[in-house]
Simulated scan of single mutants.
Amino acid sequence: MTDNLNRSRRTAIHRIVVPKEDFTGALVMERTEEFNKTLPVPFKNLRYLVVALTHSSFASEHHSYTSNEKLEFVGDGVVNFIVAKLLFLEFPDAREGDLSKMRAALVKEQGIYTRALDLGLDRYLLLGKGEDKLRDERKPAILADGFEALVAAIYFDSGMHAAEKFVTIVFHKAIGDLHNGAVLDHKTALQEETQRSIRLLPSYDTEVARGEDGSDVFTSLVHVGSVLYGEGRGSSKKKAEEDAARAALEAFVSEHPHRGESGQ
């Protein structure tokens, strides 16, 4: 009975996430094979990888392809679970609140976007013509979603052990950086830095515009006093302001080094 249940489950998953073999283009398969060779955990069934790389805009233009949206849904949960486990083991004495902050910093859009860039995912994602024109504008969101789809595809292709191995390898440096005091919350860090150095608080001016695809794009400017220190963009007000704070913190610290550093 258990074998029948597992067989039924595999069949259901296959129907959801694997595209029709006869309609996968030769060029797409060639590019997929090329990307697979670069991955720390390669795929057994490349058609799972094809789906992971297929953005909804491409699937809507090529109806034989399956969008990666459902994989993204699963991958979000898988990445969160594995990163939580890694942090739990890496920081055994940390409080729950601190572990939550670390996980949030690692799995937020910007963090996952960075991991996707490290993998070179931006060179292999399949985008529709309209979305491709917005590649730079929506790049962090597109790549973060693609990364989550990729992790889910690995899970369905080879199991949780393979997915955990992949996430562990990809997040190794980022987790190691936490030992060295990596900034988790740039808005809070910027506020603390400006208060300490010049007794002023940063202010944010954030506006939203409608992108060509109908989605909201937020742009945020951060000033300290009358000086503009950073600009950021994102798919939400929070993400845009965090991105602006990151740029502003780097600029502000270069102008106002700690006293112990200025004489070096």
Score class of each variant (00 low, 15 high):
Gly75Tyr: 06
Leu106Glu: 03
Val28Phe: 12
Leu184Asn: 04
Glu164Ala: 12
Val83Trp: 05
Leu184Tyr: 08
Arg95Asn: 05
Ala251Ile: 02
Tyr48Ala: 11
Phe23Asn: 06
Val17Thr: 11
Tyr65Arg: 05
Arg103Lys: 15
Gly111Glu: 01
Glu207Cys: 09
His258Ile: 07
Leu125Glu: 03
Leu150Ile: 04
Phe166Gly: 10
Val51Trp: 01
Ser60Glu: 12
Ser236His: 07
Ala152Lys: 09
Val208Met: 15
Tyr229Ser: 08
Gln191Arg: 13
Ala209Asn: 06
Asp243Val: 01
Thr66Phe: 09
Leu46Ser: 03
Gly77Phe: 11
Glu96Thr: 08
Leu178Phe: 10
Val41Ile: 14
Asp136Cys: 00
Gln195Ala: 12
Ala149His: 00
Ser197Val: 03
Val222Ile: 13
Thr194Pro: 02
Asn80Tyr: 12
Pro40Trp: 08
Glu148His: 10
Phe166Tyr: 12
Leu86Ala: 09
Phe156Gly: 06
His179Asn: 15
Glu69Phe: 10
Val18Tyr: 10
Phe156Asn: 11
Leu106Met: 08
Tyr204Asn: 01
Ile169Pro: 00
Glu261Ala: 13
Ala248Met: 12
Leu39Ile: 06
Pro40Ser: 10
Val151Pro: 02
Thr206Ile: 03
Asp122Cys: 09
Tyr113Ser: 10
Val74Leu: 15
Ile175Ala: 12
Ala52Val: 06
Glu261Asp: 08
Glu21Thr: 10
Arg233Val: 09
Asp185His: 11
Val79Gly: 07
Ala84Tyr: 01
Lys44Val: 13
Gly120Phe: 04
Glu96Asp: 06
Arg7Phe: 08
Leu228Met: 08
Asp185Trp: 09
Tyr113Asn: 13
Ala52Cys: 09
Asp185Arg: 09
Gln110Leu: 14
Asn45Pro: 11
Ser60Asn: 14
Gly211Met: 10
Thr188Ser: 12
Tyr229Val: 10
Ala94Arg: 03
Asn6Met: 11
Met1Ala: 13
Phe35Ser: 02
Leu126Lys: 05
Gly176Ser: 08
Arg95Ile: 04
Glu193Pro: 00
Leu86Lys: 13
